[in-house]
Amino acid sequence: MERRTFLRTAVIGSSAAAFGGTLWRGAAFAAPAQPAPGPYGALQPANANGILLPSGFTSRIVARSGQTVPGTSYTWHSAPDGGATFANGTGWIYVSNAEVSASSGGGASALRFNSAGTVVSASRILSGTNINCAGGSTPWNTWLSCEEVSRGFVYETDPWGVKAAVQRPAMGRFKHEAAAADADHGYVYLTEDESDGRFYRFRPTTWGNLSSGTLQVLVAGTATSGPVTWANVPDPDGSPTQTRYQVSGAKVFNGGEGCFYAAGTCWFTTKGDNRVWAYDANTSSLSLAYDDSLVTSGTAPLTGVDNVTRSGSGDLYVAEDGGNMEICLITPAGTIAPFLRISGQSGSEITGPAFSPDGRRLYFSSQRGTSGSSSGGITYEVTGPFRG
């Protein structure tokens, strides 16, 4: 495992060339991000919803845990967590996990919007599952909802709520966090929320069908950048030996959280060391997009890294679990700055950031809202001049 005290003194010096060289350019970013003014300017005072946003951006609440979603008869779930959007004719759908036990309503729900952005329906799309934390969308328009429990499952769900959810044991049984589909190379990447977690990829036997395939784990040394290899996980069922202990040399990641694939790169986060990683799928190499211990001046803006998404412009939006309750923006130029901050909700975390298909609206939740309880979750929409 990496020692962050070593990184502060050694990585910036002896390994700086690796971050600035061809490896990092392959991941389409400049270097581990450093604080700088954001592309949208400074945050303005908190609005009526308690959100600090750049000038020109507005927010609204679209759902509250335990309350009927306006315009529907559906009661929104507790502890909203990972989310994604799907095109739906002239409108779109936002799906959200419920990070609570089955007995408390675990699973996932969907909000459906018309072309004007009005919620026209909402419903449950997955029930009876436990601690569904994050997940990911697929190119064939399903939502992979991941159980964050020991030997948890991935469930493939239908955002329209027409088809029944399907358990996908071939994708491994472990403490799942997030998933990201890579149609360019035919894999689904998976993070594991353990302090000694691993980073996995699943190759379906047939792309688009997750019923069978091969689960692999990333293998590398202790370095934070360089080429990596993959090894098959002998027993994806994870019993009696848990998946993360089955392959010698599998790289340890401290608390895997969100992941998102685009443009040949899978970005994923680890909360235990406040890092955003970049796996370049074209060159099979690893590098760092952000590490709070590598911030060279001032205070690290991003801590408690969690869910991550990407805009059409290539900007990464990384949500905080705690920290200052911010979503921070990392640009391809290698700068990082807060994009928004939620005030008065220090007992919560920001979850589920996802852009509408046209890129004009950003959805996310405060999992425990102002109450600090899973029953107090709030799901928001931000609209504004996002760069395309």
Rank of each mutant, 00 (worst) to 15 (best):
G359K: 01
G304K: 00
T270G: 01
S225A: 15
T68D: 12
A178L: 06
R168D: 13
E147R: 07
G105Y: 01
V252R: 03
D273L: 05
R203F: 07
D184G: 06
W230S: 06
F202E: 08
N274W: 01
V233P: 13
V305T: 13
L23G: 09
G312K: 04
A27D: 06
S101W: 01
E148A: 04
A102M: 08
W143P: 12
M171P: 04
R25P: 14
F113S: 05
G89H: 05
Y40P: 06
C146Y: 04
S101Q: 07
S225Q: 13
E349C: 02
E2K: 14
L294P: 07
A220P: 11
D306E: 10
F202S: 02
F253N: 08
R64D: 12
D196Q: 15
T191P: 14
G56Q: 10
N132D: 14
S375C: 04
E147W: 02
S96C: 05
E177P: 03
G359Q: 06
F86Y: 03
D158G: 09
T243L: 09
S366R: 02
G344M: 00
L302E: 02
L294N: 04
S103A: 12
S73G: 15
T138L: 00
V162Q: 11
A354D: 01
G255T: 08
G314N: 08
A262T: 10
P54D: 07
W230N: 11
R361C: 04
F6P: 10
P385S: 15
E257T: 05
G352N: 07
A102K: 12
T85N: 08
A183S: 09
A16M: 10
V295R: 03
E156T: 03
M1P: 15
G105P: 02
L52Y: 02
S225L: 01
R4D: 09
G26Y: 06
E147N: 12
S127I: 07
P80W: 08
R201W: 10
A165R: 05
P37A: 11
A102H: 10
D273G: 00
N141H: 02
N97T: 05
R198Y: 13
R387Q: 15
F29M: 13
Y290Q: 00
Y245L: 14
S121V: 07
S366E: 05
L340H: 09
A165M: 09
A28P: 10
L53G: 03
S287L: 02
G41A: 07
I330M: 06
R368T: 08
D193I: 10
S59H: 01
A134R: 03
G152L: 03
G344H: 00
D358H: 06
S115R: 09
N114T: 05
S311K: 08
T270W: 00
A16C: 11
R8Y: 03
A33T: 10
D237K: 03
T335E: 11
T335Q: 08
F202I: 03
A98M: 11
P236F: 05
I61G: 13
S59L: 01
A30V: 15
G107S: 02
E194H: 09
V318I: 12
T269W: 03
S287V: 08
D315H: 08
P332A: 12
T191S: 14
V233L: 11
A46T: 04
F29Y: 14
E349S: 01
S313A: 15
G255P: 04
F19K: 08
S284F: 04
G352F: 00
T283L: 05
Q242M: 14
S101A: 13
G41Y: 10
